[in-house]
Design a protein around this nucleic acid. Structure first.
Length: 469
RNA sequence: GCCCCCAUCGUCUAGUGGCCUAGGACACCACCCUUUCAAGGUGGCGGCACGGGUUCGAAUCCCGUUGGGGGUGCCA
């Protein structure tokens, strides 16, 4: 027996990767790596999933995106559930032979009728002592022993269940296929799993699984149930109502590092965060510091605003080349990448997501800027707008074309109107970018070039002449 | 119905009987800085669900109430 722990992560392929699953995966990953253990990926390759290989690939890609990579020595898998199909049935057979399970030929209808007749809820072990053998249509049920089952949980402590409240549950269906409960346990056994870290929703079923482990003669794994992620209604995050797909956040310009960091703050706090005044920490530090004992017990709301805030911070920490590369997928193919690289440092602290990038600099890549009406109304209707623009055009025709001279030149011009730079730059900004907000003006002008900038300023001036009529 | 879990600012959380007049982060508000918008800086608003105990002392321990969530399938 090797002493190194084996953590399992067992997502079912559904076409998207749940952010809650991502957090659980991260917890397992941190544990596996910091303990010198193994992260074992097991995938349920149902018929449907087998027909859609992209689903399985999606899981692997999503895990890789958040840094859980298959080429890491701590990563094992993917293992597929179908590989253990024989073991499922063999285990069922052993359970039957050892008396831990028995066959029952009652149909769901019969069970319900008898329950009503006897005034009980659910199945009351009616076939326990009938000595039935396997037969078509009969199910195999687990014979729940008397007593108390205590689940030792690393995050919640000991949780006890009175076995009287657990009915004899089905292990193998009438058609001969094993149910999830059995398959899951057998898979974990076959994979040599020592630690099960999963979402809290599985806690009520854990005593059943533990009983199966024990009936099969194995020491159960060490359990840990982490709180679920919920929406603003405090309900478990669901695909229908909530934005839960990790891929969607990725596609909307969230950086993997930001997502990972944010996910780790849900239910866990990095030691020292309070003193540091921040919750932003590099993964290696979180990985080393993560302890299940420190995970809290309450469900957490997935707050997109905070995620985006983390993302902004991670974007600002990128080097300019990294930023340029990261933005690339969001930029129209025809945009000049060299030009974008020039403006990139000036938009870095203006981005919350990578997807924001094109909207901030589009005026540099289009023939004519789209003039925002409100911006025009606000800045061009002042009495100084027109003369100042005209003067600025004159001055810019001969000025050195770099942001420093562009600034000082405009400052010279605005002195005639007794304006401050904040006011004076506005008409030029609207003329050139179409908006009142955007990257620093003189830097943008420098990148744009004299000809195009003057062309736009003259066009705006012409427009003003026209309206003055 | 039965079982299990949970309960600190709007949100994520720190807090394991005195260090708590409850700390931090996000959001929000104000001010500063400023070339617009941001970013950055400073400050502010804001919370221990309720009721009983235990104790010299409770956010912290116990009981109850209320509220929320989950499970209970021949779904996974």
């Amino acid at each position: 027996m090797s002493g190194s722990p084996r953590y399992r992560f067992a997502p079912s392929p559904t076409g998207f990767f749940h952010v809650g699953g991502a957090r659980t995966a991260l917890f397992n990953w941190a544990l596996a790596r910091s303990t010198g253990g193994t992260f074992v990926l097991r995938i349920e390759d149902t018929d449907e999933a087998r027909n859609r290989p992209e689903w399985t690939q999606g899981i692997i890609d999503s895990l890789a995106w958040i840094g859980i990579t298959a080429d890491d020595p701590h990563f094992e898998g993917p293992l597929f559930q179908s590989a253990f199909a024989e073991a499922h049935l063999a285990a069922a057979q052993r359970l039957f032979e050892s008396g831990h399970a028995y066959y029952c030929d009652m149909t769901p209808d019969e069970i319900q009728q008898r329950a009503e007749a006897e005034g009980v809820t659910g199945y009351a072990g009616w076939s326990r002592d009938r000595g039935l053998g396997p037969a078509a249509g009969s199910v195999l049920r687990f014979r729940v022993p008397e007593g108390i089952t205590v689940v030792r949980d690393q995050v919640r402590g000991d949780v006890s269940f009175d076995n009287d409240t657990i009915e004899d549950f089905v292990l193998v269906r009438g058609n001969g296929t094993p149910v999830f409960m059995l398959a899951n346990v057998v898979d974990d056994m076959e994979m040599g799993i020592t630690n099960v870290v999963r979402a809290e929703e599985h806690l009520p079923n854990t005593p059943k699984q533990q009983m199966i482990w024990e009936a099969l003669g194995h020491e159960p794994p060490v359990w840990a149930h982490v709180p679920v992620l919920v929406n603003e209604q405090r309900k478990k995050l669901s695909k229908r109502r909530d934005k839960v797909a990790l891929e969607q956040y990725r596609d909307e310009g969230i950086l993997a590092d930001a997502m990972v960091n944010y996910l780790m703050t849900l239910g866990w706090t990095m030691p020292g965060a309070e003193e540091a005044g921040t919750e932003i920490f590099p993964w290696p530090e979180m990985e080393a510091a993560f302890r299940l004992e420190d995970v809290n017990l309450s469900p957490a709301f997935f707050d997109t605003k905070k995620l985006v805030s983390f993302n902004g911070e991670y974007i600002r920490r990128l080097s300019v080349p990294e930023l340029v590369e990261a933005c690339d997928p969001w930029l129209p193919a025809e945009w000049d990448r060299a030009r974008f690289a020039e403006i990139a440092p000036h938009i870095q602290q203006r981005l919350n997501t990578l997807a924001d990038a094109p909207g901030v600099v589009d005026f540099l890549f289009t023939d004519d800027p789209e003039i925002d009406e409100a911006s025009w109304a606000k800045t061009m209707t002042t009495e100084y707008a027109k003369p100042l623009l005209a003067d600025a055009i004159d001055a810019y025709e001969s000025a050195d074309w770099n942001h420093e001279t562009l600034k000082s030149t405009l400052e010279d011009v605005m002195a005639r109107y007794e304006l401050k730079l904040g006011k004076a730059q506005a008409p030029v900004r609207v003329a050139v970018t179409g908006r009142t907000v955007g990257p620093p003006l003189f830097e943008a002008l420098e990148v744009m070039g004299r000809d195009e900038a003057l062309r736009r300023m003259r066009a705006a001036l012409a427009l003003l002449d026209g309206t003055d009529g």
